[in-house]
Structure formats: C-alpha cells, structure tokens
Design a protein around this nucleic acid. Structure first.
Lengths: 112, 112
DNA sequence: CGTGTATACCTAGTGAGACTAGGCATAGCA
DNA sequence: TGCTATGCCTAGTCTCACTAGGTATACACG
C-alpha cells in the first residue's frame, strides 16, 4: 500500500536526527501510530538504496550496550529529496481528496 | 504510486452516478486535477475485477452517437467497500501525517 | 553453562498489481 | 481517404515491498 512512498517515510523518520536501522523501524511504528510496522527486509534494502543514491550517509558505531550499529543520517541531497517527495505526496493526497470531495455530477457527458 | 488505492479511486469515480470505462478515465483525470491520468490498460482490468467481486454491475448501452458502451454502476456491496477503503485511506494519510510531525496532513474532507 | 529472547544486520527470491504494448472497431472531420 | 478521438480488451512486463531465510551479540534465567 505504501508503494512509492517508502523512501519518503524512511527519510521522514530521520528528520529528528540520525538513527540506526532497527531504531528507524521502531521510530516509524511509533510515529505512525502503529500503522506502519515495517519488516527488516523492507527497511534494510531501502536504506542501502537511499545511501547509494546519496540521500543518506552511514557509519558504524558501538552502542553503550556493546552492540554494533550502522547509523544513518540524512544528507543535504536527502533533505531536498524528502522535500520533493512531500510535495508529491501533497498533490497525491489532494487528488484523492478531490475524488472524494466533489460529489453529485451528471453521468458521463462526453460531448460538451 | 497508487498501488492499493486504485479500487477506491475507481469506485469513488462512480459515486456521482453510472459511467462507462472511457468516461471513468476522464472523470478521474478531471476530478483529480489532472494528477491521475490512468491508461486504459489499468482501468479495464480493474473494472472487470471489481465487477467479478460484486462491487460493480454493468450493462451494454448504445449512446446517442451510436457507439456501444459498457456502463458500470456501483452495487451496495461496492458502496460498502468504498466506505471501508476510505477509512483505510484516512488511517494511511493520518499515519503519513504523523511521520511528518502533524504539520502536513492530508486534507480530510468529511463530505457527508 | 545452556537456552531463550530481544537486539541488530543482511540478502536472494517471491508475489501482487499497475502498467506497457499491442489489437479490434466505429464516428466524425478534413 | 486518411487521421483523430472514442471505446473496449488482454497478454505479458516490471517495479518494489515483502517473505523467508541466514548470521551474530547482549542479557536474563535456571
């Protein structure tokens, strides 16, 4: 259902600051009110793709717990991409709204 | 990008009254402000699927122009499905809004 | 010490579904 | 007589989120 919106969602999750993959999943779940509970198999390939595209930069860290984590942070390009995607989303949502909002009209009058 | 939303879009286009495939395409284009210009290869299979699912009913007519048209109209089941899809869309749009930080939310036009 | 669970990362392959690319047919116009 | 717009149809493609598997460490419990 989020086909085409995933990049935007992941980028949006990084607006608050850098995070690692596993944390991003939880972040998205929390901030979406539980609506988006994305599996790892969705997130990790996406992060790799976004980094390859220059939207994200990553580096390895070791948490206090001793675990190794790959922390991602948005690049300036990523911020621009997010901005573009947001505009696209607005148009998309408005279009859906238009389909719902406009009611009552005569059936198909092709020749006007 | 409209993966998973297409059924809803087509059903919504028929709220104003019955229409034929070609007209539905134009209807959607107009009411979406030009955002959704769906190819025939997308619409026709969808209409067939929706009819098979019992959401639409169709019959052949001959327009004043002399052309043959297959006119679709929503069934009660279709109306219920549309209603469900709309609720789903609301949750989806709200979830995206939540990720954006409440600022950019999809316009929720609660048309009665 | 062994086992279970949560954390944390990765990738090859699948599957659903919108779309491409074709085909067929008729009306109206130049 | 073409050309364009209308009008319907379907087989196959392609994208991309997701499934299903794998590896590894920290911590708690017995």
């Amino acid at each position: 259902m989020l086909k085409g919106h995933l990049d935007m969602i992941v980028l949006a999750a990084l607006v608050g600051g850098p995070a690692h993959g596993y944390g991003i999943i939880q972040q998205i779940k929390r901030r979406s009110g539980g609506a988006f509970d994305l599996p790892e198999g969705t997130i990790y390939p996406t992060l790799h793709r976004l980094e390859k595209a220059g939207y994200l930069a990553s580096h390895w860290t070791t948490a206090e717990s001793g675990r190794k984590r790959r922390v991602y942070k948005m690049t300036r390009r990523g911020e621009r991409a997010l901005s573009d995607h947001r505009a696209l989303w607005q148009r998309f949502a408005d279009a859906i709204g238009g389909l719902f909002g406009e009611k009552a009209r005569a059936p198909a009058r092709t020749h006007s």
